[in-house]
Nucleic acid binder design. Structure first.
Length: 269
DNA sequence: CTTGTCACCTGAGCGC
DNA sequence: TGCGCTCAGGTGACAA
C-alpha cells in the first residue's frame, strides 16, 4: 500500500476540497473490495463531512450520520475530480461531494476497503490498533516493554499494527538501517538504548517522507492525480545487488514472513 | 496466548 | 508475440 506518509499526504490533499461539504451521493461500481462495501454507506448521503482524519492507514470521513473508513490497500489511491469525468477501469467508488466534486477511489488490486461505522462508535478494525508512530505515546520505553519475551524478528514486530500503526515495509527497512539494527534479531533481544535509536529513526523517516509528499512508487498518485514527487532517497529498500551507501559492501536481501527485507550485514548489528 | 502462513487481486517485468 | 513465473507499498483470518 501506500504507507503512512502517502496516506497522510492523501488526507491533506483531499481535506480542503471536502471538509464542511455535503455528501450528495455515493456511487459504488465495484463493491467487491477487500470486504464488500456495506449498503449502509448510503446513510451518509446528505450528511456533512465534519472532519477528514487519519488513524494508522485508514482515512476517516466523519459525519453526524456515521464515519466512512477508507483504506487504500496495496494499490489504492484517492483523487479529487469532477463527477462528469468518466471513471476508468479500476475506479470503483465515487463519493460525490456537493454538485461538482467527486472523491474517486481507484484500486486495481482491490485490497483496499470502504467501510462504515455509526456515529460515535469505533469500528472494530480500529479498536486494536497500536499508537501513532508520530505521537508521544510511541517511545522507546513503550516498545521495549511491549517487546519483552517476543520471539519474532524486530522488523516483523515494528510492522505489526497492534504494536504501532503505519510502519510498512519500506519504512521498516529504512528505519532499521538508519538505527543500525539487524532486522533479523528477535524483538525481545533489542535493548532500550537500541529501541531509542529505532524510535528516533522511525519518527524521522516518516516525518521526512510526509514532508516530501510521500514516496512515489508505482501506482501511488496524489489526490489531484499528479505524481511529481521527489523520490525519497532510499538507503536499502529495493536495492538488490547494490552496495551500502555507508560502507560500500553489498547489501543483503532476504525474506521475512513473506516480505522482502534489505539490510547491510556490516552496518546493522 | 503467540507465531507463522495463506489468501485476497491485478499488473509489470523477466526468461524462454 | 505470447506464455508462465515471480514480485509488488497490507493485513485479517486461520492453523499450529
Amino acid at each position: 500500500m501506500p504507507e503512512l506518509p502517502e496516506v497522510e499526504t492523501t488526507r491533506r490533499g483531499i481535506e480542503p476540497h471536502i471538509a464542511g461539504q455535503v455528501i450528495s451521493a455515493i456511487k459504488v461500481r465495484q463493491p467487491q473490495l477487500r470486504w464488500p462495501v456495506p449498503k449502509q454507506i448510503q446513510q451518509l448521503c446528505g450528511a456533512t463531512i465534519d472532519a477528514v482524519k487519519r488513524r494508522g492507514k485508514y482515512i476517516l470521513l466523519e459525519t453526524q450520520q456515521g464515519t466512512a473508513l477508507i483504506h487504500l490497500g496495496m494499490s489504492g489511491s484517492l483523487r479529487i475530480t469532477h463527477p462528469d469525468i468518466p471513471p476508468e477501469k479500476h475506479d470503483h467508488v465515487d463519493l460525490l461531494v456537493g454538485d461538482d466534486i467527486a472523491l474517486r477511489l481507484r484500486d486495481p488490486r482491490r485490497f483496499g476497503a470502504v467501510l462504515w461505522s455509526v456515529g460515535g462508535e469505533l469500528h472494530p478494525l480500529l479498536s486494536k490498533l497500536g499508537p501513532e508512530p508520530l505521537g508521544e505515546a510511541f517511545d522507546a520505553v513503550y516498545l521495549h516493554e511491549k517487546s519483552r519475551k517476543r520471539v519474532p524478528a524486530v522488523k516483523t514486530f515494528i510492522m505489526n499494527a497492534q504494536v504501532v500503526v503505519g510502519v510498512g515495509n519500506i519504512y521498516a527497512n529504512e528505519a532499521l538501517f538508519a538505527a543500525g539494527i539487524d532486522p533479523r534479531r528477535a524483538a525481545g533481544a533489542i535493548t532500550l538504548a537500541e529501541y531509542q535509536e529505532l524510535v528516533t529513526h522511525i519518527k524521522a523517516v516518516l516525518a521526512r517522507a510526509i514532508k516530501q509528499g510521500g514516496t512515489t512508487l508505482r501506482d501511488f498518485v496524489r489526490e489531484d492525480g499528479q505524481s511529481g514527487y521527489f523520490q525519497i532517497e532510499l538507503q536499502v529498500y529495493g536495492r538488490s545487488g547494490e552496495t551500502c551507501h555507508q560502507c560500500g559492501l553489498m547489501l543483503t536481501h532476504i525474506r521475512q514472513t513473506q516480505r522482502s527485507t534489505w539490510f547491510c550485514a556490516h552496518c546493522q548489528r
